[in-house]
Computed example of a mutant assay.
Amino acid sequence: MERALAVIRNDSEQTQSLIREAGELAAGVDADLSLLHVLPEEEYEEIMSSRLETKGKSFPLDEAEMEAEHFATQVGHRALENVDIEYEVLGTVGREEHAILDVAEELECDHLFISGRRRSPSGKALFGDLTQRILLNFDGRVTVQLHEEE
């Protein structure tokens, strides 16, 4: 591992654990580590609509990306406070799969860390599965931490 990307999908204990593991592994092999939070396109559009209705203000894309980066910074700080590693934090807006893969390619990452939910085969078929699509489309190693579907 030379360059790792850890995806922050939420602020759960599972995500904290995944980020900590990514940090410890990257520190152990002296690899670069980047943390990424993607604000899903649908969520961005919902926030934009809500702000227009309630405040009469829009939600500029650059502001949304700054909020996504801020979220990643907060989660990363808590998860990595006891890990001796420097890392970069990124935030973006878009379709999660494409954004994750684009950032990983742009940074030339060779390892990706992502959390996922345990789902039944029919659940995967009906709703799709981001983690599965990342596994199939990322050209490198992927560490997946699974947790129970809620």
Score class of each variant (00 low, 15 high):
Q74M: 07
V75P: 01
S115I: 08
G140W: 13
S50P: 00
V89P: 10
L136S: 10
G128P: 07
E65C: 11
S34W: 15
H147M: 03
R95F: 12
A4P: 04
L107Q: 14
R78Y: 00
T54S: 09
D139K: 13
H98N: 10
L33E: 15
R117Y: 06
L33H: 13
S34H: 14
R9F: 00
V83G: 08
A104Y: 05
R141M: 01
L36E: 04
V83Y: 08
G116P: 04
E42R: 13
L135F: 01
L80V: 07
G91N: 06
F59H: 04
P60W: 09
E2H: 12
Q74Y: 12
D30W: 01
S122E: 10
V93D: 02
M1L: 05
F71A: 07
S50A: 12
H111N: 12
V142N: 02
Y44A: 03
S12M: 10
E81R: 11
L33A: 15
V83W: 11
C109E: 11
H77N: 10
E69Q: 13
L36H: 03
L90A: 00
E96Q: 12
H77R: 14
G28A: 15
A68H: 09
G140T: 05
E43I: 04
I19P: 03
Y44E: 01
G76T: 01
E97S: 07
A26K: 00
E149L: 06
I85K: 03
R119A: 13
I47Q: 06
E105G: 10
E149M: 02
I100E: 02
E53C: 01
L33T: 02
N82C: 12
D11W: 01
A104R: 05
E150S: 14
R117L: 12
Q16G: 05
G23M: 05
L107H: 13
R118C: 05
F59E: 01
R95K: 12
M48S: 10
L126Y: 12
H77I: 09
E65T: 15
R3D: 10
G91F: 04
S12E: 07
D84H: 10
E43H: 09
L39F: 13
N82H: 13
A22K: 04
G128N: 11
F71P: 11
R118V: 13
R119Y: 02
A79C: 03
A26T: 00
P40H: 08
A68Q: 04
L90Y: 06
S122D: 11
A68C: 07
K57Q: 08
S58H: 08
E69G: 13
E42S: 04
V103E: 06
Q145P: 00
E21I: 02
L135W: 02
E86N: 13
L130D: 00
L5K: 09
H111C: 13
N10F: 03
Q74S: 05
V83C: 12
G56H: 08
E88W: 02
R51N: 12
H98G: 06
S115T: 14
G128A: 10
E81D: 09
E42I: 03
D32V: 10
A4I: 03
E2N: 14
D30T: 11
R20K: 08
V7C: 11
F138Q: 09
D84L: 03
T131C: 12
H70N: 14
H37F: 04
A64D: 08
I85N: 06
H111W: 08
V142S: 11
Q16M: 15
L90K: 11
L101T: 10
